[in-house]
Write a protein that binds this DNA or RNA. Structure first.
Length: 428
RNA sequence: GGAGAGGUGGCCGAGUCGGCCGAAGGCAGCCGCCUGCUAAGCGGUUACAGGGUUAAAAGCUCUGUCCCGGGUUCGAAUCCCGGCCUCUCCGCCA
């Protein structure tokens, strides 16, 4: 969420910032509502001050045994007027917040121009794709022989689910473990275990609601309690952990990691990436989340990307890093990078991680603040998040990059300790 | 699932028949004083949000906040209703 005060004081700068991302057209109405709100607040509060004084006088009069009926009647009317104003104020506040929630974050000045992911800018590449002595197969073909089973998954659930048998299931688990160990032992993250179902308020505070409801799986409690939502990423749970809190500045940055399944409806992607497990309703991810001061946030973004890259380096799989352009930044991000892994079966780089700095936009929405070291008023934290990595897509990358002519897959060195020294997955 | 108790400031804890309660007292913190050191002692101070004033900040001032949302009342921490959460006992359970 953007600071309404910033919009009020520098509407033109905000309008320029939102030019590509959209939402600038909402500003006039927002400014009008803001002016209405302040007018109503002033009037209501003046009347409340009057009433408070009068009520005190009535109390004193009554204690002296005097009659205060006339004054009480007068205040009854004032009370009615206040009630009317407050109802109006509440309605203005609600409309104002609904509008403010629709405004995306302002891009950082360093973010490249561009409309779609095609305009993203490659920042660096790591390692060279290996040369195969045979035509490399896509992961769904390599995987089918090794225990990747989408047919039965579709039967017991629906399309876009998978069953992993034997070594493939083991590979999934081993990768998650490798990632968690790397981030907790070498990158300073604290491992957190979180609920996979969260309430609507948490979804609102982390920017999933109201805008992205169609992407979420929603549950209904049997006793008609508030609905809970399946998390689309551990980011929502991790970021919301400190919602409403004021953290000491010395405790920043905080670095959290969690291994969870992610559940996404994938509405509007029918027919897209239907083969294999690139796009699933359920997938595992090791997520990275940081809370930082706005001053630390951009350096923390760089190190977060490096932390995610380290996973692919361990696995010896080629990738490139692209900086997302304004049009591909997403709603909440001020700046962000994607890591794209090389998939020889597809002959191209595909997204395996997305790291973003939401800066104070995220902290304001979730109400996460910090108390500056020298004292003073609390300020909003910057929130950052990134995949480190999406486990299912890493499985894809491993089996495509390490496939052999006979249909087997070599287990990367770094992964063997997590698979009892197993060197190879062979067709079943 | 059944029965009961409760949610007050950074923490503990008091709030009488609704007014003088943004809230006693204690602890912790900060500033100063005092004292060979330490401990003790003395004085002051310590929430958040929003509005107004200001170029802005500080300051001043007003409003709201005693879990959340409604209601009663001239006036609610205090009374009433709903929700959320916590605890105790019984039952069930990985």
């Amino acid at each position: 969420m953007l600071d309404v005060r910033l919009i009020r004081e520098q509407p033109d700068a905000v309008r320029r910032g939102l030019a590509t991302k959209g939402g600038a057209d909402l500003i006039p109405e927002l400014l009008e509502l803001d002016a209405d709100r302040r007018r109503l607040v002033r009037e209501s509060e003046n009347l409340k001050a009057l009433r408070n004084k009068a009520s005190e006088a009535i109390g004193q009069a009554k204690r002296r045994g005097e009659d205060a009926g006339a004054e009480q009647a007068r205040m009854r009317e004032v009370g009615e007027r206040i009630k009317t104003l407050d109802i109006e104020l509440k309605s203005v506040d609600e409309r104002l917040e609904a509008l403010a929630l629709q405004l995306p974050n302002l891009p950082h000045p360093s973010v490249p121009e561009g409309k779609s992911e095609d305009d993203n800018v490659e920042v660096r590449r790591w390692s060279e794709p290996r040369t195969f002595g045979f035509p490399p197969k896509p992961h769904e073909e390599v995987g089918a022989a090794l225990g990747l089973d989408v047919e039965r998954a579709a039967r017991i659930a629906k399309a876009r689910f998978a069953v992993l048998w034997g070594g493939m299931a083991r590979l999934e688990r081993a990768l998650a473990q490798l990632m968690l160990d790397l981030h907790t032992r070498e990158h300073g993250y604290t491992e957190v275990w979180v609920p996979h179902l969260v309430n609507g308020e948490t979804m609102l505070k982390t920017g999933q609601l109201p805008k992205f409801e169609e992407h979420l799986f929603k549950t209904v409690e049997a006793d008609e309690g508030r609905p809970l939502y399946l998390i689309p990423t551990a980011e929502v749970a991790l970021t919301a952990l400190h919602a409403g809190e004021v953290l000491p500045e010395v405790s920043l940055p905080r670095r959290y990691t969690a291994f969870t399944p992610c559940y996404r409806r994938e509405a509007g992607t029918y027919g897209k990436d239907m083969k294999g497990i690139y796009r699933q309703h359920q997938f595992d991810k090791v997520e990275l989340v940081k809370l930082a001061t706005p001053a630390q946030a951009y350096a923390e973004l760089e190190s977060m990307v490096a932390n995610a890259e380290a996973v692919l380096q361990r696995l010896q799989i080629p990738y490139r890093v692209v900086e997302r352009c304004i049009g591909d930044l997403g709603f909440s991000a001020a700046k962000g990078y994607d890591i794209e892994v090389w998939l020889p079966g597809q002959g191209r780089y595909r997204e395996i991680s997305s790291c973003s700095n939401y800066d104070a936009f995220g902290g304001r929405r979730a109400e996460i603040r910090f108390r500056p070291d020298g004292g003073g008023r609390p300020e909003y934290c910057a929130t950052l998040n990134g995949s480190g990595l999406a486990v299912g897509r890493t499985v894809m990358a491993v089996i495509e990059n390490y496939q052999e002519a006979d249909g087997s897959v070599t287990i990367p060195q770094a992964l063997r300790p997590y698979m009892d020294g197993l060197m190879r997955l062979t067709p079943r």
